[in-house]
Simulated assay, not measured.
Amino acid sequence: MSDQKTAGPLAGLVVADFSRILAGPYATMLLADMGAEVIKVESPIGDDTRTWVPPVRDEVSTYYLSINRNKKSIVLDLKDPDDLAAAQRLAARADIVIENFRPGLMARFGLDYESIAEANPGVVYASISGFGTGAGKDYPGYDLMVQAISGLMSLTGSPDGQPFRAGISVFDVMTGMHANIGILSALNVRHATGKGQHVEVNLLASALSGLVNQTGAYVAGGTVPTRMGNAHPSLFPYEPLPASDGEIIIIAGNDVQFSRLCAALGVPELVEDERFATNANRTKNREELRPLLEAELAKRTKAEWFEVLLAAGVASGPINTIAEGVQFADGLGLAPVVEVGEGDAMVPSIRNPITFSSSDLRYDLPPPTLGEHTDEIRAWLDAEEEDA
């Protein structure tokens, strides 16, 4: 049933997407970009994010638009016997099934892994939950809830202020990527053995893994990290510092980079100061080093320092708005914005971050309207059943 214009590395694979909101739809959009045929199964009221406004484009939620390109939408009410039968037929024909309902709900409809695998033993079935299938199976899986429970919010904000959430649903996105890693790994196993398998990920496990050095500090070092504002617990400088007209990010990730920074600032003698000679000492003595760096940075604007420091091989950067960030990437030739679809249906979107040397990505289908492809998909299912 594919009418895609380009063949990506996943071309020919059919994905039955029973997910909604963010983690699942983000994962399936990336699969669709790489050529998979993603069929988005929606209830009669549609994906929740269709109603998450503002902002909007042509009265459609930009939240929904940002994670649902290259998909086809079919409306199926799983409480309706005919629709449920269609959903089961779709899952039986799919290479990949992905869902993010509370654990146990899909089994009520005969759409769980065990039920689907009986008719489709090669299926790669991915389940996304908030807190796993054990004691946390009934917990609702919202990113903000996981940001709080995982400890991320305890690290975000000023030392003397209140905890803050991250500016995006970071663990939803991370879990979606973890789901895709599991899916692609399972596809590799299927290629070798012909056998499918059940891939399970959850937001809390992804969060604890994604907190990397912070959770590592606790489990390996017995240290409970706390809020440090924009400071880094193990590096200095690695934070915004004030130039003459505002703050600029300054990074010295090792001793060589610190030497380059000092030379660019005109204070090479700081490298020889025992207090600052090593990263461990710079981190320990950051309150003594910071004013020395700030005194030099105050002599130029942040734009001037950005140019000087990059030329010196020192990582630095302005603190941009989202608009400025997109424009900066465009100025580097990264072409971050792609046009999905054509004519009046065209929707600007952010480019998939992956490139392949010998495969194309696709950007041919704008995010579907609710049930836009229901008749087409039902006709395909009927034809497949007649051919079976």
Rank of each mutant, 00 (worst) to 15 (best):
D58F: 11
V124P: 03
L155T: 07
Q257E: 14
D83K: 04
V326G: 03
A205C: 09
D172C: 09
A231G: 02
Y63K: 00
E274D: 14
L334F: 06
E385F: 05
D48C: 04
R227Q: 04
I21W: 11
N281S: 14
G325D: 08
G182H: 00
G46F: 06
L31W: 03
I249N: 12
V53G: 01
V146C: 04
G130Y: 06
G141F: 05
A87Y: 07
P348S: 06
Q327W: 05
A311W: 05
L155I: 04
E272R: 13
E288L: 14
P140N: 07
A94E: 06
S206I: 10
K302G: 00
D245L: 09
L332V: 08
A388C: 10
H198A: 03
S316I: 07
I74V: 15
R286E: 09
L292R: 14
F276I: 03
M228N: 05
L184N: 07
P367K: 00
V326Q: 00
V97L: 09
I354E: 02
V347T: 06
A231Y: 04
E372A: 15
P103L: 08
G161T: 10
V201R: 03
I128M: 13
E307F: 03
F328G: 00
D360L: 12
N279Q: 15
V97N: 01
F18Y: 15
Q214T: 08
R108Y: 09
V201P: 02
T355W: 01
E384D: 09
G132L: 11
F131W: 00
Q162G: 01
N202D: 15
V314P: 01
A94W: 08
L310N: 15
A27P: 07
I248F: 11
A126R: 01
N285T: 04
A148Q: 06
G35C: 07
R165G: 01
A119I: 02
E274Q: 14
M29I: 02
R165C: 04
P163V: 04
